[in-house]
């Protein structure tokens, strides 16, 4: 996974942000098509920790909630499934910003 990212970073002039966006979107699409499921079963954390796993969780959550709650599920499912990661990132990000300062690069 990271290998593909590195090739993209070195070979193209894409910025990391663009790569992240395309990775997550790719994860969503693969998740929706049901392709990511077997990868996840096989790779476990190897497939859930990288960002396409994040996209996969978004897609899976949306589908699950649609099944459960109908149309509104399309809007609730994605974020619900990824709430832990996003909230953790915001919370820890805030805490880290409070306690530490950026250092100059050596």
């Amino acid at each position: 996974m990271c290998l593909i990212g590195q090739i993209l970073m070195d070979k193209t002039k894409l910025t990391p942000a663009r790569i992240l966006v395309s990775f997550v979107t790719a994860g969503v699409i693969l998740g929706a098509l049901g392709i990511y499921e077997p990868i996840y079963k096989y790779g476990k954390a190897g497939a859930s920790v990288p960002l396409p796993g994040f996209g996969y969780a978004l897609a899976k959550g949306a589908i699950k909630d649609v099944e459960k709650y109908g149309l509104i599920g399309a809007f609730t499912g994605g974020l619900k499934a990824t709430a832990a990661g996003v909230s953790a990132a915001i919370f820890f990000g805030y805490i880290m910003a409070l306690v530490s300062k950026p250092r100059t690069k050596k």
């Binding site: 970073m9 990391p16 950026p102 250092r103 100059t104 690069k105």
Partner: peptide, 8 residues
């Protein structure tokens, strides 16, 4: 980028 952001 911000200083602590990990890039190459």
């Amino acid at each position: 980028f911000p200083l602590e952001y990990g890039t190459q």
